[in-house]
């Protein structure tokens, strides 16, 4: 049985795109599901036009079935979405996979798919993913949530085997900031035109991850 499984894996890997989109997703899911825990030192870089913040360091602790916990002695902004590196929210409820065809990646062609939850309990309405079918991992994701708007992830991996990224860009839509004027210093000139123009902004958080340990199931 075990040998059969290995053979099946080998055939899947060798055949690449001959698998259906759903099979590809399930294969990636099984790789992600194998991660039980990990701890990673993260460096957070905030890239939002109206926020200037020095890069921050923190510790990310992941346990399967739980949200990632971020620990830091500094003040850090942690994006509400995008830190679920196991993509568990996508696969929590039954879903459908729609094949969107191939797209060009940086060095290889990628499979574009959409995941549509078939259960109303799911937190997202649609998720578009780019899957590297040869390395069996997600390189890009755009997830439209029901409550927190849409966010995009771009994942960069250290080698061809890794399932967890070492670089992660999380982009999201956010409202402009509304500061009560009495908080601003007396001299602060409020550029109202600029503020109005910045009504909706795209923010980005860049994370560099350095894993202390990763525990996987065999």
């Amino acid at each position: 049985m075990k040998l059969h499984g290995i053979l099946l894996l080998f055939l899947y890997a060798a055949n690449g795109f001959s698998q259906t989109a759903e099979e590809q997703v399930l294969f990636v899911k099984s790789r992600l599901d194998s991660i039980e825990t990990f701890q990673a030192d993260i460096k957070l870089h905030v890239d939002i036009s109206f926020i200037k913040m020095p890069d921050k360091e923190a510790l990310a602790v992941f346990k399967k079935g739980e949200d990632v916990v971020i620990k830091s002695e500094d003040f850090v902004l942690i994006p509400k979405r995008g830190l679920d590196l196991s993509f568990s929210e996508l696969f929590e409820y039954p879903f459908m996979v729609v094949d969107r065809g191939e797209v060009e990646g940086q060095s290889t062609s990628l499979l574009a798919i959409s995941i549509l939850p078939s259960d109303n309990k799911a937190d997202f309405s649609v998720a578009n993913l780019h899957i590297d079918t040869q390395k069996q991992r997600i390189t890009w994701a755009e997830i439209n949530t029901k409550k927190d708007g849409a966010y995009t992830l771009r994942l960069t991996y250290p080698d061809s085997q890794a399932i967890l990224p070492t670089k992660l860009d999380v982009s999201f839509e956010m409202d402009r900031i509304r500061i009560p004027l009495n908080f601003a210093g007396s001299d602060v000139s409020i550029d109202r035109k600029k503020i109005r123009a910045a009504d909706q902004k795209t923010g980005k958080i860049r994370l560099a991850l350095k894993y202390r340990n990763i525990e996987k199931t065999q």
Partner: peptide, 20 residues
């Protein structure tokens, strides 16, 4: 309370770790 008002908009997008 003042800090909460200042950061109110960011609360939709971020969690905060640490105290300002």
């Amino acid at each position: 309370g003042i800090i909460d008002i200042v950061l109110a908009n960011l609360k939709d997008t971020f969690y905060f770790q640490g105290k300002l």
